[in-house]
Design a protein around this nucleic acid. Sequence first.
DNA 1: TGGTTCACTGACCGCGCGTTCAGTGACCTG
DNA 2: CAGGTCACTGAACGCGCGGTCAGTGAACCA
Lengths: 207, 207
Amino acid sequence: MAQTKSKEEVVQEYRIQSIQEATMRVIARKGMAAATMQEIAEEAGVAKGTIYLYFRDRDELVEKTFERAITELISKVDGAMQMPGTFYEKLRAAFAAKIAFFNDNREFFRLYVSLRLPEGNAQQQRRHRRTCEPQYKSAFDHFAGQLETAMKAEEIRHMDPHRLALFIIESTNAIVLDRVLSEAPPPDEVDVSFMTDLIFDGIRKRS
Amino acid sequence: MAQTKSKEEVVQEYRIQSIQEATMRVIARKGMAAATMQEIAEEAGVAKGTIYLYFRDRDELVEKTFERAITELISKVDGAMQMPGTFYEKLRAAFAAKIAFFNDNREFFRLYVSLRLPEGNAQQQRRHRRTCEPQYKSAFDHFAGQLETAMKAEEIRHMDPHRLALFIIESTNAIVLDRVLSEAPPPDEVDVSFMTDLIFDGIRKRS
DNA sequence: TGGTTCACTGACCGCGCGTTCAGTGACCTG
DNA sequence: CAGGTCACTGAACGCGCGGTCAGTGAACCA
């Protein structure tokens, strides 16, 4: 019974998970700055003090919650890009994965968008930069690398891969954000097609 | 001397302006949530209490500061879109205007990006929605209308104009934001061309 | 020049937050 | 069943914020 999970460990993991899920829901409702420990505790159905048994402070709670979610997002999108097929098909699959992820994790978007411009005091911002940004940055560079490969394989036009990565990631973020904020977003397919076609072919009238 | 500006009015306007400029600088440094009245007062070279002679509370200060800046941005971008020429030329001019504005108003970007996802308590968010969002929304709808006109004139492909407006505005925001955060952004021309060409022609390899 | 005004100041207040820790009771153990 | 353990609780604490207001002195007036 030494190498398997003890009963205490199972309970502990369950607590951690339900606190993190509550954190996501509250941040989604109120935003990063207005999400209080009191409300997170109520949402999770525990006392405020209990949270501090599992997380050192508020910063660590937010940080760990963020890590768990973004790791999942990155692996899903990257998995889609690894599928066999043309670059167009890969990109389309990646967009579909991204939209599907946010359909299932509507709560996550506020955390996600606060990535690029962290709020809070100077110390929080430094911490944020140390922990969250590297993950985002490496995923970003990875995507830029894939774009560069596609350029070399003559699958897409040549241009600055980092600028292009930024453009694609953020423009799709905008659509996803709009979907999350919207009461009744269009079907996944519509937005996936819209984004893929627009990025591949632009808005110019074909002659 | 009744109908011209009195000395007091001149002083008053100067105070208001310097407090608003200080507000922009502090928000740019620290972010919306971490910008305190104390620090804004120090930055403006006045006492904290003085700010309350000109603005009812913190919310009104931020709101008025935002209004002043976004009005200027909208008029510049819209002015560029009104110039004669093809739609390609108009869009290019609008992007150039946007980049030029943020070159001159680097401080404004944090206020600007916080538009879409306001932080703060529920009351602040409601206020924010009432005052800032309508301006953004009307500019947004206006742009969507211009896109629709261009579609009807067969200058660009047909698609959902609101989705397209969102896509264009936010993707160019991403580039602008990156420029503002960057120590040494590329020359204006490079990014203007990049954005315009990408949006017009996409990434597909031409056969 | 003495009196009056008023823009400005900054010490102060109350509030709400993150964080703490003495207390509690369910559960295990012998 | 008595005694001990420990995950959990929530009242209480300190801090830092937005906001206040009695006091101050420069500028102006009679």
